[in-house]
Amino acid sequence: MSSSPITELLPVPDEVTARIGLIQYEVEGSFPVENGYVWTTCASVENGNPLFWNETVANELTNGPIAPPTMLSVWFRPHHWSPGRTESAVPLQAHFDLKDALDLPEAIISSNTNTFHEPVRIGDRVRSRQILRSISEPKTTKLGYGRFWTIDVEYLNQKDALLGVESYTAFGYHRLGGDRS
């Protein structure tokens, strides 16, 4: 099989440009918001905020237990495996779609803006939807040669209240000196 060094990127296909601004992958999380993950997450960063550990404090301040705001994305990530599935599900599918469509094999999240609205409550069923906002011109960074893109993920609860928005900026790239085989 022949290979050649990457010197330029493929143009952005029209069907990819057409996705900008469209709602994609509107799905409900595979389980309700639950305290086990809240405590595991707090433990992972040694977060002792009594709002998440002390029910009396939670009742006083938030009218019952809530999840840490930065856990928004936890509630939409698919299980690594579930019955009947033969391939791994990926959480930010619009992101992986772009990697494939733009022929950019590697990608890294470079920046992230999270806006927090209604508190996420234990027992909530969280629904998410993904919206591609932009794709950049070709760029070169120390990681490689590729494009930046921004995807918003909006989160809503079972009452359609907006819980928050996560805006991810990613860099999809070929490693410098890499080949397109």
Binding site: N47, G48, N49, P50, L51, V57, L61, P69, T70, I108, I109, S110, S111, N112, T113, N114, T115, F116
Partner: peptide, 17 residues
């Protein structure tokens, strides 16, 4: 929130890695 205590409520967070 270690600094604000439990009444500190995050509104927005932007970070660049």
């Amino acid at each position: 929130t270690d600094w604000t205590g439990p009444t500190g409520r995050l509104g927005r967070m932007t970070f660049h890695m």
